[in-house]
Amino acid sequence: MGSHISPPNTGKDQDRALDCQRAMEVAFAQLLSDALAAGWREMEIAIVLADIADDHVLKLAKKTKSKDFN
C-alpha cells in the first residue's frame, strides 16, 4: 500500500480528532483504491473495515477497563 499518515498538526487536544480524521481519510482512500483494484466490492470492504475498527475499539475498551491503556 505505501500510504503515509501525517502526524498531528497541533498539540491542542481539541484539534487532534480532526487532524486524525484528515490523516486517516487519505490512508483510507488509498486502502479502498487498492482493495477495489484487487477485485473486492466496495460494500465488502466497508463492512470488513467497520468490523475491524469495532474489534479494535472493543480491545481498547478492555485495556482501559484493566488499566493497561496505552
Rank of each mutant, 00 (worst) to 15 (best):
M1R: 09
M1T: 07
M1Y: 08
G2Y: 09
G2Q: 06
G2A: 08
G2S: 14
H4A: 06
H4K: 15
H4L: 11
H4W: 14
I5T: 06
I5A: 02
S6W: 13
P7R: 14
P8V: 04
P8C: 14
T10H: 04
G11Q: 12
K12F: 10
K12Y: 12
K12D: 09
D13G: 05
Q14R: 10
Q14H: 10
Q14E: 10
D15V: 02
R16E: 07
R16N: 00
R16V: 08
A17Y: 06
A17R: 11
A17E: 11
L18M: 10
L18G: 00
D19F: 00
C20E: 04
C20F: 03
C20S: 12
R22N: 12
R22P: 01
R22Y: 11
A23V: 01
A23F: 01
A23M: 02
M24W: 04
E25H: 11
V26Y: 07
A27L: 01
A27F: 00
F28G: 04
Q30S: 02
Q30F: 03
Q30G: 07
L31N: 07
L32F: 09
L32D: 04
L32P: 01
L32K: 08
S33F: 03
S33A: 15
A35I: 02
A35H: 00
A35Y: 01
A35D: 05
L36A: 02
L36R: 07
L36E: 12
A37W: 05
A37K: 09
A37H: 06
A38V: 01
G39L: 03
G39K: 04
W40C: 07
W40A: 01
M43H: 15
E44Q: 10
E44P: 04
E44I: 00
I45W: 00
A46I: 01
A46K: 01
V48F: 14
V48H: 08
L49P: 05
L49G: 00
L49V: 03
L49K: 03
A50Q: 15
A50E: 11
A50S: 11
D51A: 10
D51N: 07
D51Q: 15
D51T: 11
I52R: 14
A53M: 08
D54P: 10
D54S: 06
D54M: 07
D54K: 10
D55Y: 06
D55M: 11
D55G: 12
D55A: 05
H56Y: 15
H56T: 11
H56L: 13
V57I: 15
L58D: 06
L58P: 00
K59P: 02
L60F: 12
L60R: 15
L60H: 04
A61E: 12
K62E: 00
T64C: 05
K65R: 13
K65I: 04
K65A: 12
S66W: 08
S66D: 08
S66I: 10
K67Q: 13
D68T: 04
F69M: 13
F69N: 06
F69G: 02
F69I: 05
N70C: 11
N70R: 07
N70W: 05
